[in-house]
Amino acid sequence: MKTQRWFTPWLLLGPAVVWLLVFNLWPAINTVVLAFTNAKPLGGGSFTGLANFERMLNDDQLVYALVNSIVYMLVCLPLLLFLPLLLAVLLEKKLPGITFFRTAFYTPVIASAVVVALIWTWLLEDRGLVNGLAQQLGFLTEPLPFLSGRWLLLFSAISLTVWKGLGYYMIIYLSALGNVSRQLHEAAAVDGAGPIRRFWSVTVPGVRTTMLLVSVLVTVSALRVFTELFVLTNGTGGPGGRTMSLVMLIQMYSRGFTGHLGYASALSLLLFVITVGPMLLLLRLNRKAA
């Protein structure tokens, strides 16, 4: 059998090799290098040893950002673990019009986070729809400052992330539900188990592996949150810059005359340390699924 010339594979692979080296491996190495310098967004920079890491230890804003990330994760996890599963169970049965509902539920996923955050800003402002309706229905006597309190801002951003993520995880669950045994459901039904009981004792155990995948995905995306907080706080990070995320800090130090790429890179390394565990787990789970 005739084999190809030795360079043919490398011709085909050429662009991918260039991109692997220039836009994937080199930036990874350079992040480590930059973290030990005082490089600026407009150029320059020299070796400064551990200065950036020492600075991290005394950075109050970083503490706020990390606390915010933990809260973000803890609130997002249960909500995004179960709400999308409920949606998937609703969509599972092939009723007329079900494709329309599936597409509609997915729409928030394909919208840009900027678009959604601006919609949220309008919904949640003092005279917006949410405050208006809540007052109309008697839940509130005066508007809640969703967009100015430190914690309210954080929870508004979380609600946005959850809402935007519903459709994404719903689709993942939907394909997993196909593998849950129908016989088990029928047997449980014959034994007199109601729908809620069967959700907990048949559906949930049946999608166990997928739930693990979803929780890792949610964890990683909670640690990477940026756009929601940036747009809802109009780039300020909320009152006193306390409603920031780690990525927001990285972005803040990457721009303009006051920027500090060295410190931003040190923060990036911190982000790597936090996310590498879940990312490795994700890679394993995906390979197992494939």
Binding site: T31, L34, L283
Partner: peptide
């Protein structure tokens, strides 16, 4: 190597990506 890059969220390398 390709598989290895998947462990990095884009945000981790975004600063050095900008330098490149």
């Amino acid at each position: 190597l390709v598989l290895g890059t998947l462990v990095l969220p884009v945000e981790v390398t975004i600063v050095s990506q900008y330098v490149t």
